[in-house]
Design a protein around this nucleic acid. Sequence first.
DNA 1: AATCATGCCCAAAGCGCTTTGGACAAGAGT
DNA 2: ACTCTTGTCCAAAGCGCTTTGGGCATGATT
Lengths: 343, 343
Amino acid sequence: MNLKDLAATLGLSQTTVSRALNGYPEVSEATRKRVHEAAREHGYRPDSRARSLATGRAMAVGLVLTTSARQEIVNPVFADFVASAAETLAARGYDIVMSLVTEAEQTAVYRSLLRKGRVDGLIMQAPLTGDARIGILHKIGLPFVVHGRVSDHDEAYSWMDMDNRHAFHTATDHLLDLGHRDIALINGIEDMDFAHRRREGFIDALAARNLRPRSDLMASAAMTESYGHDTAQRLLAQPQPPTAFLASSMLVGMGVHRAIREAGLQMGQDVSVVVHDDGLSYLPNGTPEQPLFTATHSPVRQAGHLCAEMLLRLIADPSEGPIHTKLQASFLAGPSTGPAPIQ
Amino acid sequence: MNLKDLAATLGLSQTTVSRALNGYPEVSEATRKRVHEAAREHGYRPDSRARSLATGRAMAVGLVLTTSARQEIVNPVFADFVASAAETLAARGYDIVMSLVTEAEQTAVYRSLLRKGRVDGLIMQAPLTGDARIGILHKIGLPFVVHGRVSDHDEAYSWMDMDNRHAFHTATDHLLDLGHRDIALINGIEDMDFAHRRREGFIDALAARNLRPRSDLMASAAMTESYGHDTAQRLLAQPQPPTAFLASSMLVGMGVHRAIREAGLQMGQDVSVVVHDDGLSYLPNGTPEQPLFTATHSPVRQAGHLCAEMLLRLIADPSEGPIHTKLQASFLAGPSTGPAPIQ
DNA sequence: AATCATGCCCAAAGCGCTTTGGACAAGAGT
DNA sequence: ACTCTTGTCCAAAGCGCTTTGGGCATGATT
């Protein structure tokens, strides 16, 4: 049952039926009611393609899902991010079209996005330092928002980012204030822009107190629990082990925690740990009253909402210049940090 | 630049240009080449809506993301599932359109999916026992595949499921063989069909040895780390604590592990733990050589691939009756289980 | 009584593609 | 010489919707 049939059934023109359904004023209340009833009765549902073709709006946004091909790891943050973005978008009638992009096909990238008309705008996730995708997105000519930023990239683009640098600066300061000097940074892959910035924040905080980072205490890899565990285990077995850890995610922190316990040490006493908490729904940092870790906290769901909202703004008015949102992580002191043990 | 313009530029008809680009044989090689070159040069990209409208195929499948509104928890399995499904689908030129569905709007549900023509088929995730959505999907009339099954539902539908019952039967048997009698089941929310089945497998295995489950040793909630921790902590403090735990996910298992250590006990010695491992990319069960937990293992990425393939088959030939795929979890003995301690 | 706005409705022209049903010329077969 | 294929191309009819540019009553205004 299409519009034509429905109009014929009602003895009305397509114009009137279309207007009645879309809430235009040029139709009497009686007719509108009649149309709505008939539509319901016959189970009429407009064809989104035809509508989209006629209006020019796709009522969908694209979300590019990147898998770090190297590690075959899907970003654990993805689920919450997309769920929150979808929530905001759905409320405005927008769908999400997902495209998977593996690093390998960077050139043939965004192939499906190149099929015009499928989406009105794009959200790009997990940018790398100097990510070439920004250029591609510019060429496509659709409004887009980057979740994160791209260092060393001067083209103007809209982004929404957490202040990773500041967050890790704060976390490091916290540990320094407690007297720690040998602090390990268990970071994500530093090609990822956010990891790069976190490292900078860490180093800056040390430098501000005339300390130099020990390169043997800085690790970088995909942020899994075992990575946290294995790295912490290795570092703790070193001649001059760290007295504190800075973990780039909850999962990594849990791995570090496990290694600490296995070494017969107690977290918060013998060894301190600060984690960054993305506020994943399935991986809460204990409870607000009883956190598991001292943490910098920045909910990814908030990020998802904001990205979606920014994109909708850009879609509504593409002339609106690049817009930026910087989120500050909150700092939460928990039981996983304490004064540095006296040598 | 649209097809018309391109054709005009080339001095050809739209028909010929369209055929040249889509690889139809009725066009000379010379012309085809010329058309391709012009298309590249002018950056021509066909409008997916127009094409879809003309062909009747959307070249996209819908994926329904459910958030358990009650707990506001996004399924951690989602990211890997969708990534693997997207991989398979992308290889065949299909996109994924995501819709968020909260339990609240079950009636107004699938609203965006009701907009016809957006997708050629659907994948439904995380079905509840007696899930009403199956009926809705049937009404929509598009081919669909359910990831999981729906107990107490007699309508025919295509599904792909892991044999949860068998997996948990096996896991329970393993613990029983080791002499454990007081086994705790730390399950997911039992409205979820998979959790329901796991519980059945657990109870069946006990019943097969004339044992009755202790209801005080069965828990059910959203599968977070803290849930695992808090529950295990509580149970271990009981007068007659369990000697073994069956955890419904890696994350839960990690929480249980933490509680065990905190209680001054050793996992694999004092208390045994078996987990179910979905093979999440960011949450591996140690390494294959050195697993962290004894586990039943069924990679969700495989499930994603299979669901996508099944759906593509159904789309290609909708007359093909409901198809079913049942995956068997593998069992991996690890260091987290050992003989029951002598009383 | 003539004019004007207003409310309600319609026919038809797109949106950009695919596909059907030929047209036309060149060479092959009789 | 004629018909038949074959290869190459085209005009035009959709696909199902929105939107433009009226038309025709009806009631209000001068």
